[in-house]
Design a binder for these strands. Structure first.
Length: 612
DNA sequence: TACCGGGATGAGATAAATTC
DNA sequence: GAATTTATCTCATCCCGGTA
């Protein structure tokens, strides 16, 4: 039946990250089916609700949007060049060109060439912020598919906005201004000024001015290159980006979960300021780790007022003599996170707690850290554990305050969360509006797909975060965890003799709870999912599309194929790998493909191929 | 032994939603 | 209408285990 096919395709396309119709259109088709064939199994299958493209405005990136590795010293930069050159040599490339561009300090974004703009988010999923374009964000080339940066013209910002007060607050940092611009439902006067001057823009990285040179030349004059690039850039920058240009090198080097190995940002050290330590707060995290946070005499530093700085570990506090009255120099590297650069004048008294600041139990020393052995008996840890769980499962509306209500209200196990009703929540002292929203979020979590690695990582098992959860679930389904032993784990790359026994034991201990949680959820298995960037399904393939397609417009499919690594050709030739045939295909293309060793695929087979 | 990557933890600004 | 809570954007640094 044609209608059912369309619905199924639309559903699949949505989950593959390439929605082909709006929610309203989808719902209309469902209603149509209900009207014509109310007993059709499609209407009754226990399929999750299709997640709306626009609701919650989350966008799954077709390929991950990675961050950039950073270097602050020439030596780190030299090490980067050496890594690249070593790889180049190993694959037989002699001359290696690098491209240097200014590193814009804004919000990174991805534009699809069709009016859709999204933020990077966590790299896998971002926010749909297409409405920023309607609000007046300038886009130089509306047809260009590109990653880029959302920024404001720096001279304009300095002349017209910086230091001025809007809504009772002085504008300080251009990036924060743009964060506000993107987040605002209605534009404020300050936003409108920027729009009228066409000063708020999406700048594709490919459009940036650049310098291209070999490694030794770049290294010799890195300061000069850096200065020239930044002087010629009309936006705020916080360094330069250097990348190997040869696609073969890029392919050979690949990426970590966090960044491309063929690319690095060379950043300058930020401003510094001197201040005094007022007190030290010892925070207990979900793992029991006790972390010292310095409450300092507030100071202005690159457009922000700094009040707190982490000291990371108890060992550092002792080694550097940090205590009340100590005078310290702080820096905001990357203009974001403040850090203790040096201790100018140590404190007279340096104290490290011996009892947990939360539950008073005696602390233990764990390497460089202090550890509270209280576990869930320690309230800080209980709160942290549940908060981590909700965060990892992306249950919206469960912040620290609400979590506190839940724990004090008697939530002791993870799976209990899924049985909570609006009434239960209100009885825990949560006010009605918030209770209702949370209840909706919990229901949504049950019905919408969630990646299995998120579920496993949510349990906070030691040595098993999101990265290693992915590795494990690439080898077994979440339902097969009862077979996971120490031996099974240590056979997986990245699991060694220390982590394997510990993880295996924790999984077996938590198995009943894991199963209970899993029974509430709609899980998307890693083993079925699309591969990562390192192995794009269409990498190096030449593809021709012909005819019209049910899952999406042909242009969309072509763009998607390119993102998946393919080279899209307009006609079939001897180098073509695949001809993808839609409805009413071009007969010349088909006959050409049949005469050549070209694989002809229909739409369904093609969709299967790219989802493998 | 050196290096790399994963995991845990941390900070500030801004806006929206909700409560008081 | 002010205050509180949450979410989202920006990101660094530390330690340790695994691996080359």
């Amino acid at each position: 039946m044609e209608l059912v096919k369309t619905l199924t395709n639309a559903n699949d396309a949505y989950r593959a990250g390439t929605p082909v119709m709006s929610d309203a259109e989808y719902d209309a088709l469902v209603e149509e089916l209900r009207a014509t064939d109310p007993d059709h199994p499609f209407l009754h299958q226990v399929e999750p609700e299709p997640e709306s493209l626009f609701q919650g405005s989350k966008v799954r990136h077709l390929t991950p949007m990675l961050s950039t590795d950073k270097a602050y010293a020439i030596s780190e930069l030299a090490a980067f060049f050496k890594r690249v050159l070593d790889v180049a040599t190993s694959i037989g490339i002699g001359k290696v060109l690098f491209r240097a561009t200014p590193k814009l300090d804004g919000l990174s974004g991805r534009y699809d060439g069709q009016g859709h703009l999204s933020t990077r988010g966590n790299g896998l999923e971002g926010q749909d912020i297409s409405n920023a374009l309607q609000k007046g964000l300038c886009l130089d080339n509306p047809d260009l598919t590109a990653d880029g940066e959302i920024v404001i013209d720096q001279p304009f910002f300095e002349e017209n906005l910086q230091g001025r007060i809007f809504n009772g607050r002085a504008l300080t940092h251009p990036r924060n201004f743009m964060v506000g611009f993107i987040g605002a439902d209605d534009l404020g006067e300050h936003h409108r000024l920027a729009v009228e001057a066409k000063a708020a823009r999406f700048v594709p990285y490919v459009a940036l001015g650049d310098v291209q040179a070999e490694a030794d030349i770049m290294l010799d004059d890195i300061e000069g290159i850096s200065r020239r690039l930044r002087d010629n850039c009309q936006y705020l920058t916080d360094g330069i980006v250097i990348e190997a240009m040869d696609p073969r090198i890029r392919e050979a080097m690949g990426a970590t979960n966090h960044h491309h190995r063929w690319q690095i940002a060379f950043k300058t050290k930020g401003e510094t300021a001197e201040t005094m330590v007022r007190s030290i707060t010892w925070q207990v995290g979900r793992t029991g780790r006790v972390t010292p946070v310095l409450e300092i005499e507030p100071v202005e530093l690159s457009g922000a007022t700094i009040r707190r700085v982490t000291a990371h570990t108890a060992a550092i506090v002792q080694a550097k003599g940090i205590g009340v009255g100590a005078v310290i120099k702080i820096i905001r590297s990357g203009e974001v996170i403040p850090k203790v650069e040096t201790v100018l004048q140590p404190a007279d008294v340096v104290e490290v707690p011996t009892q947990c600041p939360c539950c008073n139990i005696a602390l233990e020393v764990d390497g460089e850290y202090l550890l509270c052995p209280g576990g869930i008996e320690c309230m800080s840890q209980s709160l942290g554990i549940l908060e981590h769980f909700c965060q990892m499962l992306e249950i919206d509306g469960a912040g620290p305050s609400i979590i506190s209500n839940l724990v004090h209200g008697g939530v002791e196990t993870f799976s209990q969360v899924f049985d909570l009703t609006t009434n239960d929540l209100e009885n825990m002292g949560i006010s009605s509006g918030v209770a209702k929203n949370l209840s909706v979020a919990i229901q949504a979590r049950k019905n919408q797909h969630i990646d299995d690695w998120r579920v496993l990582a949510a349990f906070g098992i030691r040595h098993l975060g999101r990265g290693d959860a992915k590795k494990l679930l690439a080898k077994t389904r979440i339902g097969g965890l009862n077979f996971v032993t120490e031996e099974f784990l240590s056979a997986i790359d990245g699991f060694g003799p220390i982590t394997s026994p510990s993880i295996a034991a924790d999984i077996q201990r938590l198995l009943p709870e894991i199963n209970a949680v899993v029974s509430h959820l709609t899980i998307r298995h890693s083993m079925d999912a699309a591969p990562s960037t390192s192995s794009l399904p269409l990498k190096g393939k030449r593809i021709v599309f012909t005819g019209t397609f049910a899952t999406a417009d042909r242009k969309v499919l072509e763009k998607q194929a390119e993102t998946l690594g393919a080279q899209v050709q307009s006609g079939v030739n001897a180098k073509t790998d695949f001809l993808i045939m839609g409805d009413k295909p071009g007969s010349k293309k088909v006959s050409a493909a049949q005469a050549l060793p070209v694989t002809v695929l229909d739409e369904a087979r093609y969709v299967n191929l790219i989802r493998q």
